[in-house]
Design a protein around this nucleic acid. Structure first.
Lengths: 218, 218
DNA sequence: TAGATTGTTAATCGATTAACAATC
DNA sequence: TAGATTGTTAATCGATTAACAATC
């Protein structure tokens, strides 16, 4: 049995480990572009500011093949395994609800295609936005959300609406059969079990910075 | 001695606790607007999906006054203490380097003013952007970064450049005396000790969602 | 072979939770 | 007073690290 599938299926891989994967991937691809075939855990650890033991543990959790004593880990193999683990090899469609500044930034950013997510359309309530074309993607009325999701087999909904609208939109997305929600509105959404949810609380991130600035000034 | 200052100065408050503060604050303000004067830890815990014990511990770390048995915590007092702890009462100036989609979204978003951060200008290398006015804020050449920071006493630099430019920009910011960097470019920046840094890795966040989608499909 | 590097088992560390006495 | 709710001390839990045998 492939280790990979086993761990994923059993939920054995912690969020902390998953969160480090994109950074590993970036690093490995950079090495690959330099023609490097093998990397040791110590080498990766040094570059990425984590311990070598943690690197080995992380790799062992997502890789189908183990590292080789004296040689290290095969770069190409690791890249393939991590991409598969993260679903990068099989991009899924996403929509953006709320076409303010942040929503439009998402519609215009192509970088997530390399991360397994393909943004296909925007949605808004504002008549001035509906029908517009932003970076080649059409903005539809939120009234069409449900139909669009079902017809186009959209898996991920990105919420960039104001706080007041977010929970209602989330409910509609869930009803329409969305599988995952990435929420940038400043509130903790609640969704039923079975729906994957990631609340992106930028205020919380900023708090980590600003509270340290406060502390430094004492 | 105020508990508040003591804990901050000694670094006794963990990142996890700090990260929950903005959510507490949002909730407390909502209660306040309904006329609620006191909240119990159990009540807050239920709303926010954490344990009551954790709420009490968190509050005790940042609040100058303790909760009252039978009554709970005084809402107004908590709000003031948390705002002070996070530096919301004394907003600091910030600049955005890189005026692509995300950078412009920041320039146009006024919401961070309530979170102790006041974005005052944008910077770019692109001649088409330099001199433009985005949501009332001027975009300057990155050549003017150092001078601007020093003249205007800017504390926070938000990096929304492409990956390739980010580390160089970070170095310039540090040289110019910036105190904190909020990095949205997809790489781990390195800064000298004494500079506060928050790497915002959206790819890592997305990975948490998409890897779960992969797992669900097995 | 000797040495570098791996994977595994046990220890540590920090954050969260449980138990419970203190208090209004 | 009785009861609700707090703050504190000890226990638990999960993630990270240390120690070390296994391996090419």
């Amino acid at each position: 049995m492939r280790k990979n599938s086993l761990n994923v299926a059993s939920g054995a891989v912690s969020g902390a480990t998953i969160g480090r994967m994109p950074a590993y991937l970036r690093y490995l691809k950079e090495e690959q572009s330099k023609g490097i075939k093998y990397v040791s855990s110590a080498f990766v650890a040094k570059e990425m500011d984590v311990s070598a033991i943690l690197v080995r543990k992380d790799f062992s959790l997502v890789s189908s093949s183990s590292g080789k004593p004296r040689l290290g880990f095969e770069v190409e193999c690791l890249i393939n395994d991590i991409e598969k683990f993260l679903g990068y090899d099989n991009a899924t469609d996403a929509i953006v609800v709320g076409t303010g500044g942040l929503g439009c930034a998402f519609l215009g950013y192509e970088g997530f295609k390399n991360h397994g997510m393909n943004i296909v359309a925007g949605f808004d309530v504002n008549p001035d936005m509906i029908g517009k074309n932003i970076s080649g993607k059409t903005v539809y009325s939120v009234d069409e959300l449900g139909e669009f999701i079902q017809k186009n087999n959209v898996n991920i909904g990105i919420i960039t609406t104001p706080k007041s609208a977010a929970q209602k939109i989330s409910d509609v997305l869930v009803e329409s059969g969305i599988k995952a929600i990435w929420n940038f509105a400043p509130l903790q959404l609640s969704v039923p079990a079975g729906i994957e949810l990631k609340n992106e609380d930028l205020a919380a991130s900023l708090a980590l910075l600003s509270s340290k600035l406060v502390a430094n000034e004492l």
